[in-house]
């Protein structure tokens, strides 16, 4: 059913028909798999990179200016690339790691390569929010840098870190939708193939519902988690 020759509401009704969802359901799983794995990689990589960026800056716990400058430059380079270009650029990397340059796992590499730097910046900006006095107090008590990072900086800024991660997950979801074109499958792939190439717009609609629901769910969960923490600490 195409919007070109069918009234909008008929397409709309057809989008709730099981027929429209038949090819979509397996794609949802593919998407969840890609998003899930990418998020885990982004979380780990982004936190590590964000921490290094934070503590090595001039006013940080362990100032190492050359490392900070070079990492920062690399992060900026990666962040300046649109997702499509990143996927192409990651072809050799994917081939090196996985032996092939297309498919779900190759796509995850490209997704992680653009999401880690983005999340690292969010982590950095959250960690920099911490009041200097708290770090001073921890230092004055004889904390090691390791203790300051893991017992003070991360717990104190956790609500903000969670909000940052929520933003990152949503970015992963939308990038995953786009990556579908490169043989990775998933909801985005279905939406483009059926909606654009075959003019089955009811399937496109259904795919949009799923994406919207997914993003709403993630945002809701992220907001709730950060709110619960703030409430617990009586900060709101």
């Amino acid at each position: 059913m195409s919007l070109l020759n069918t009234p909008f509401w008929e397409v709309f009704l057809a989008s709730f028909d099981p027929a429209a969802w038949k090819s979509l359901v397996p794609a949802i799983w593919e998407t969840l798999y890609m998003v899930g794995i990418t998020c885990v990689i982004t979380l780990v990589g982004g936190v590590i990179l964000g921490l290094i960026l934070t503590v090595t800056n001039t006013f940080g716990l362990l100032p190492i200016v050359w490392l900070n400058r070079s990492l920062s430059a690399v992060v900026n380079c990666l962040r300046s690339l649109p997702q499509m270009i990143m996927i192409i650029l990651m072809i050799p990397v994917a081939r090196m790691i996985l032996g092939k340059a297309y498919g779900v796992n190759a796509c995850i590499i490209a997704l992680a390569a653009s999401c880690i730097p983005m999340f690292a910046r969010l982590v950095e900006s959250s960690l920099l929010e911490i009041e200097k006095g708290k770090v001073d107090a921890a230092k004055a008590m004889g904390s090691s840098s390791f203790q300051i990072i893991f017992r003070i900086m991360i717990p104190e800024t956790l609500p903000s870190l969670i909000r940052g991660f929520t933003v990152a997950i949503i970015a992963v979801i939308s990038m995953t939708a786009l990556a579908g074109n490169f043989g990775a499958g998933g909801i985005g792939d279905i939406a483009v193939r059926f909606g654009f190439q075959r003019f089955q717009h009811e399937v496109l609609f259904a795919a949009v519902y799923v994406l919207v629901a997914l993003v709403q769910l993630v945002q809701f969960a992220g907001d709730a988690a950060s709110k619960i923490l703030l409430k617990k600490r009586h900060l709101i």
Binding site: E131, G133, K134, D136, A137, A138, K139, A140, M141, G142, S143, S144, I152, P155, E156, L158, R233, L235
Partner: peptide
């Protein structure tokens, strides 16, 4: 050694600097 010595030097601040997560 400084970290060990600091344990024997308490410090309090105008802004208290308590850890809000604890």
């Amino acid at each position: 050694d400084l970290n060990i010595e600091r344990r024997k030097i308490g410090m309090i601040f105008q802004t208290f600097n308590l850890f809000e997560s604890m």
